[in-house]
């Protein structure tokens, strides 16, 4: 087997980052950041750790990441050709696309009836999870470190023992009439 060139891995990472950034977009990490399109303020799936999560074999996707990236770039190249979009030299075709076109490719790949839909949905699911649940990190530690997704969602910090307890939870007063046909134990009659 031919050994992989270092820049292949870099292209893979950049391509997967661009996919993750399409799912939950963020701001560019540095001037000239190609993977992150920069259509949103604050961190997105990339900053939240999507690549770390995808590269953890617990997800079951890790072994297929080369193929995901290659396939995504093939689809993007076909899309670019169809829409007369010029590719940037040395940049993977999916990364070359502006955000709206990346989103159009993702919508097409995940639409009902697309033969590869299940694969792309699973990739999107983990990108989303990197942001909304930081599934590669301990939740309490992620919050303490200012994880962009958990923080943006306003998830509160746990007690010092790592467990959540809420001391106030209820408006504490009747807020509706109950259904007239309710049994004494609270079930529908």
């Amino acid at each position: 087997m031919a050994s992989r060139k270092p820049d292949d891995h870099q292209d893979r990472t950049t391509t997967l980052e661009a996919f993750a950034d399409t799912i939950i977009p963020g701001e560019k990490r540095y001037a000239g950041d190609l993977a992150v399109a920069g259509v949103s303020r604050g961190g997105g799936a990339v900053q939240a750790g999507a690549i770390e999560l995808l590269e953890w074999d617990a997800t079951g996707l890790t072994g297929g990441l080369d193929d995901f990236a290659a396939a995504l770039n093939r689809h993007a190249a076909a899309y670019a050709a169809e829409h007369g979009l010029a590719a940037e030299d040395g940049v993977p075709p999916f990364v070359s696309l502006p955000y709206d076109d990346r989103a159009a490719v993702v919508r097409w790949l995940t639409a009902p009836g697309h033969p590869e839909k299940a694969l792309w949905v699973s990739l999107a699911l983990f990108c989303n999870m990197a942001y909304d649940s930081a599934a590669h990190l301990s939740t309490a530690e992620a919050l303490a470190a200012g994880h962009p997704g958990l923080t943006a969602m306003g998830i509160t910090r746990p007690d010092p023992d790592g467990l959540w307890r809420f001391r106030a939870w209820s408006y504490g007063r009747p807020l509706a009439d109950v259904h007239p046909a309710t049994t004494p134990s609270g079930s529908p009659a």
């Binding site: 939870w169 209820s170 408006y171 504490g172 007063r173 009747p174 807020l175 509706a176 009439d177 109950v178 259904h179 007239p180 309710t182 609270g186």
Partner: peptide
């Protein structure tokens, strides 16, 4: 009603506001 969470209370209040009943489960 003291056990009902804020989310449940909100749902109850919205049900009442639209002329409906709502039951603690």
């Amino acid at each position: 009603w003291d056990d009902v969470s804020y989310a449940g209370g909100l749902w109850a209040a919205a049900c009442r506001h639209s002329g409906r009943t709502a039951n603690p489960v």
